[in-house]
């Protein structure tokens, strides 16, 4: 099967824009691995938050191709250089997504609420001092604050607002981000999750996690339950077991995350 993705030689670049790297490749691999499901899913509105070089959104458009012709694509980035580079990358591949220079989805959150069927995010996940978050240029592509979660947590709140009832979210996380805790947090909002790709490089261990609404999950009616015990224990265990199966996963992470914030 010849699923096309973006060609590296056609991806544009700029000194202030994050180039396609292991995390970008892992995210595209995850989307490819799930391509058949995505084609059956027939998303109407697809979106990438933080499009950087444009490698991921271009690959997504190419792999869904004409079979998902009924879809439109939107991509945002806070870095205006990244928006230009994404535009050049898309033009080189003859695809079109609507680009907006904005912080996460600011300006779209009201009207786009509940309309996004597919959201992909490679967030700034690197743990950094908090004051490095929100800087201009390429730093915005990686500076993630404490545990690399400052921007991730903001994005997740926006994602919960934007995703349609049948919306899927694919997100890159690092072990240091405590992905099992992210999954538990999302479960409280009614989302099931699965690791699509898990990859360890010399520098980092990446997980690409897919989230989708599971209507069998009992969501806290008023969000008053202060800890993660709200979700049925068996289901939480099944999420955790996905991580525990991974040999590099340190049990201390799982244990400490059980106490929540």
């Amino acid at each position: 099967m010849s699923s096309r993705i973006a060609q590296i030689r056609l991806v544009s670049s700029h000194p202030e824009v994050y180039e396609p790297c292991d995390d970008s490749f892992a995210l595209v691999d995850a989307l490819l691995a799930d391509r058949k499901n995505l084609l059956e899913h027939k998303p109407t509105l697809c979106m990438e938050v933080g499009c950087g070089s444009g490698y991921v959104i271009t690959s997504l458009m190419l792999m869904l191709g004409e079979e998902a012709n009924g879809a439109q694509f939107i991509a945002t980035d806070i870095n205006h250089h990244a928006i230009r580079v994404t535009q050049e990358t898309m033009e080189a591949h003859r695809v079109h997504a609507e680009l907006i220079n904005t912080d996460i989805a600011s300006g779209l959150e009201n009207r786009l609420a509940g309309l996004v069927d597919l959201l992909v995010v490679n967030p700034p996940y690197v743990p950094t001092p908090e004051d490095e978050v929100g800087r201009e240029g390429i730093a915005s592509a990686w500076a993630g604050g404490e545990n690399g979660r400052s921007v991730i947590d903001r994005i997740l709140l926006v994602a919960l607002k934007l995703l349609s009832k049948r919306g899927w979210l694919y997100m890159v996380t690092l072990t240091a981000n405590n992905p099992s805790q992210i999954c538990r947090q999302m479960r409280k909002k009614g989302y099931d999750s699965r690791i699509i790709v898990q990859r360890s490089t010399e520098e980092e261990s990446l997980h690409i996690i897919k989230f989708w609404k599971d209507f069998d999950i009992e969501v806290d009616a008023k969000d008053v339950v202060p800890n993660s015990n709200a979700a049925p224990a068996g289901v939480v265990d099944s999420v955790l077991s996905q991580f525990q199966r991974l040999s590099f996963w340190r049990s201390s992470d799982v244990n400490s995350s059980r106490s929540g914030k």
Binding site: I78, H80, I83, R84, Q87, L99, I100, N101, T102, D103, S106, G107
Partner: peptide, 9 residues
């Protein structure tokens, strides 16, 4: 500009 809205505040 060049078809791209700048919504940064």
């Amino acid at each position: 500009n060049k078809g791209i809205p700048n919504m940064l505040l």
